[in-house]
């Protein structure tokens, strides 16, 4: 499905990806960032798909054909939920070409274009989640936040399974490499629990995270899972 209109990410999210924190960049950099954002917006073709699966127990899995959702963090996130939405989104391959082209001419522009694409991917995922949340609410159900493979102890090896059960290759042109990288790169897969009562889910803490050591958000005291210090 298409996302229209194209959401506009908060400039602060983009600055945060570039390591700025609370500091504002100089006007020249601001202008360059706007150009990078425009480039990405021109070529982005965001497409998303979601499917809802009943949850199997022991082991926790998406019914009827699997896959198993292994690890403690996803179990915590989906606790109290009877089924699970798989949300998948990609900005499409045009964005990747634009990032490469920008980087070939100017490394700084390549970096900023890449960051602008990441920010837009998140904003699009937020927009798709909002649509899903509305549909679910119409059925009187509640939805947790998004939880993606690679967070906490949920393995990246889940990616091919999620694409397979949703038919994402054919539906939105998203594929996954043998090393579990989503291609096109600027893409997101996420699990959201459904329940009959209000749920929020639990994002994993930093403890098991693969980028714990180098994460700038964590160093700035703004971890993904919010203010909860665990």
């Amino acid at each position: 499905m298409e996302l229209s209109p194209l959401p506009r990410p908060d400039r602060r999210d983009l600055l945060s990806l570039l390591g700025y924190g609370q500091t504002r960049p100089d006007p020249a950099t601001e202008a360059a960032l706007s150009r990078a954002e425009d480039t990405v917006r021109t070529v982005a073709r965001p497409r998303y798909i979601y499917r809802i699966f009943a949850l199997g127990r022991q082991p926790l899995s998406l019914l009827p054909t699997g896959p198993v959702l292994s690890g403690e963090d996803i179990a915590r996130h989906l606790s109290g939920c009877h089924s699970c939405a798989v949300l998948i989104l990609t900005l499409g391959p045009g964005v990747e070409r634009a990032i490469r082209a920008a980087g070939a001419a100017d490394a700084a522009m390549g970096l900023m274009t890449d960051a602008a694409a990441s920010a837009l991917t998140e904003a699009c995922a937020d927009a798709a989640e909002t649509i899903l949340r509305r549909e679910v609410a119409e059925q009187g159900l509640y939805l947790t936040g998004r939880f993606s493979p690679g967070y906490g102890d949920l393995p990246l090896s889940l990616q091919p399974e999620l694409l397979r059960i949703t038919g994402s290759a054919r539906a939105i042109g998203l594929t996954v490499s043998p090393s579990h990288i989503l291609l096109p790169r600027k893409s997101i897969t996420a699990l959201l629990g459904l329940a009959h009562h209000p749920v929020t889910g639990h994002l994993a803490g930093c403890e098991g995270c693969a980028i714990k050591e180098s994460c700038q958000k964590r160093q700035r005291g703004e971890p993904c899972h919010g203010m909860d210090p665990t």
């Binding site: 570039l18 960049p25 100089d26 020249a28 950099t29 490394a107 700084a108």
Partner: peptide, 11 residues
């Protein structure tokens, strides 16, 4: 200074 500036300076 931040990464975009570092890279622009490098260019």
């Amino acid at each position: 200074a931040f990464l975009p500036q570092l890279l622009s300076a490098a260019s």
